[in-house]
């Protein structure tokens, strides 16, 4: 019984760490996605705008 209880405790601790790591991963993915979206779709810096021009039109982002 004791062994099983301690196994459960260990498992739940590991589960908590994994969940926290996953939360961080999800947050990082969302931030990276928003940053790339800003570059691809919104930034008006002329180099970015020039590079993205055709793609913005083709993907129906407001371009200019």
């Amino acid at each position: 019984m004791t062994a099983i209880t301690s196994y459960k405790t260990t498992a739940s601790v590991h589960g908590g760490t994994a969940a926290r790591t996953e939360t961080l991963g999800i947050a990082a993915a969302i931030l990276a996605g928003l940053a790339l979206l800003f570059v691809a779709g919104i930034s008006q810096a002329s180099v970015v705008h020039g590079a993205a021009h055709d793609q913005r039109h083709a993907i129906s982002f407001p371009c200019h």
């Binding site: 993915a29 969302i30 996605g33 790339l36 979206l37 590079a51 793609q55």
Partner: peptide, 21 residues
């Protein structure tokens, strides 16, 4: 045209990151 292909990949990678999350 190379930049257009590149920006297609950047745009869809942005969306894919949000979708995978």
């Amino acid at each position: 045209h190379g930049l257009t292909v590149g920006m297609a990949i950047v745009s869809y990678t942005a969306f894919a990151l949000l979708m995978s999350a």
